[in-house]
Design a protein around this nucleic acid. Structure first.
Lengths: 341, 341
DNA sequence: CTGTTAGCGCCTTCAG
DNA sequence: CTGAAGGCGCTAACAG
């Protein structure tokens, strides 16, 4: 390994000078800088990160914590996409990202501990948000920089997070259905203790009430990440006395399952039933029919969270922020107009 | 930050003793070990990774390089799943993983350089394999430990890789179609310079020839990652004089697109056309119809690659290996028997 | 069984 | 503008 000393020797200067050249210190003459840089190049010098980190007590690396992967949720294309978003800014500022790998909540917690105690990373991005989360408490106690993607459960004003306005999104997409003449609209969401679900659902309800439409519990189903297309959930809806004509599904991947079940049961989308959902991952444009869905700009979500985190690591007194990424509805083919009945 | 010295002072021993306790060195008396451990606990000591890395010249961290994300391919659920696989072993051995984030080939190359030159990682897992890849050459030149998931292009015997027997898988799945009476079978694959595609296709061809079935170029289409369901590709197939009755598609996500296009054009799967594919990601069980696909055990692919890499970093003279992960066909509903025509 | 000493490669005062 | 010296936190001989 070629070190700073080798470069120094080759150039006939001192190691500290070389160090200063690396930092592009203005008090070094252009001449020596050039000399040194040339030597670095020919010798193939590259700074040793660990040594630098040790010296400056920073790692220029951030940790990304995925939700526990007990279920299939991780196969949601949402994740690679958000990683890309994070990656894009990470790359620009020459940081690196360290991915959590735990399967269980316990494992994840251990890993976060290692990350912060071991000075692996300068900050952490949480790709989930859960009630009573040990990780969050831990991070807050230690006053360790972190941001969450989504809506934090506790002390929402004190943890910076980047999120969509899921309430509004829920309203808009539901309104879209109503404007097309739908009066019986159901909501299919994931686990009830996910804020995304709750917010989107709240928006849905608000619009229903406002429009004076039926807003009954029967029309709302929550299922764990959909196994076998969430068959039971969908069936329950369809076997009601007055089944819905429209469905608001809280995730594209879920929609795929719902779509399948629906058509298997002999319902045609959008002819018999209209369906809208959220996220706009790639697959929502290759389903049949292609999904009308709200684009939450996953990539931006990731990018902004990284940006916010880095700011925070660089300036600890940066105040907690809430960053709302705008969404927009992408109109495709999963909805149709209802004759006024 | 509490350091080894603090612990030493608190316990009344020397720093090196503490260090040895950390390493669980057998030559330290149980008594002092206990004392030291207790002090570590009460003081809240955690080793500083950077310092250790610097001292031992190892990072206990591996880099994971994703393909360039110019296209939508990254939204393939394949990736999160393989990351989970890698993560599972990484976690057990207390390593960490650093994810590449580059969008372009160029960016990726830069990042790999940083990773190896900067001693960020001990080794690297390549999640892709491309002809004439700078990254691969770079790694080989520098004799830096790496493994590739899939089949490497150059010097296949000198780079350890973990892969499926895609040729065989291609044969088996095609044979399945034949056994059900299909005689006109097409192949839809991704880019031709991906070995996965080529291998699967070769298997397909072999079986066709063996069975004395038509193996014409018209039946093979290659498309970049399917935009809008690979409409053109599928159409080309269907508008042939004798359109195929069976299709072998080289990826589940692609299959979804094909499925949509097919049904939009009025063909029913599996009634009119049978379709089989590869990977068995979660969505293949919630499509309509659910896909008969070969399960390539993505998770295992990831886990084994991590395992092989770690072995390699720990023992540089570990020989290059080829690790083949067994596959198996998962029978679902996208195929049907053909009357003998 | 344990302490002392010397680095790992880099950065950062403090002098000059 | 540049050099010398010390230290970041930990490990690894080398002594005892």
């Amino acid at each position: 390994m070629v070190t700073i000393k080798d470069v120094a020797k080759a150039t006939g200067v001192s190691p500290s000078t070389v160090s200063r050249v690396i930092a592009d210190n203005p008090r070094i003459s252009l001449d020596t800088k050039k000399k040194v840089r040339k030597a670095m190049k020919t010798l193939g010098y590259h700074p040793n990160i660990n040594a630098r980190n040790l010296a400056v007590k920073s790692t220029k690396s951030i940790g990304v914590i995925m939700p526990s992967s007990a279920n299939k949720a991780l196969q949601n294309p949402f994740f690679p996409e958000i990683l890309r978003g994070i990656g894009s800014v990470i790359h620009d500022v020459q940081y690196s990202m360290s991915l959590s790998t735990g399967e269980t909540e316990e494992e994840i917690f251990e890993e976060v501990q290692r990350m912060v105690y071991g000075s692996y990373v300068d900050g952490v991005i949480l790709l989930y948000s859960r009630v009573n989360d040990r990780v969050t408490s831990f991070l807050r106690e230690r006053d360790f920089p972190f941001v969450v993607v989504g809506k934090p459960y506790d002390d929402i004003n004190e943890v910076t997070h980047v999120d969509n306005d899921n309430y509004k999104a829920g309203q808009e997409i539901t309104k879209h259905l109503i404007e097309l003449g739908h009066k019986k609209i159901a909501f299919i969401g994931g686990s009830k203790d996910l804020f995304v679900t709750m917010d989107r659902e709240a928006g849905y309800e608000a619009v229903l009430n406002e429009a004076g439409l039926e807003n009954c519990e029967d029309y709302k189903v929550h299922t764990e990440f959909l196994k076998s297309g969430g068959r039971e959930a969908v069936e329950r809806l369809l076997f009601l006395d007055t089944p819905p004509t429209g469905m608001v599904v809280s995730d594209d991947l879920m929609s795929l399952g719902v779509l399948s079940t629906l058509e298997e049961l002999g319902y045609s989308v959008p002819k018999d039933i209209s369906l809208v959902s959220f996220n706009n991952v790639y697959l929502s444009e290759i389903t049949r029919p292609a999904l009308t869905t709200v684009d939450v700009q996953i990539h931006t979500l990731g990018a902004q969270s990284a940006k916010a985190l880095i700011e925070k690591t660089q300036n600890k007194s940066e105040p907690a922020k809430r960053i709302i990424i705008p969404h927009k509805i992408v109109y495709r083919d999963s909805v149709s107009r209802r004759g006024t009945l």
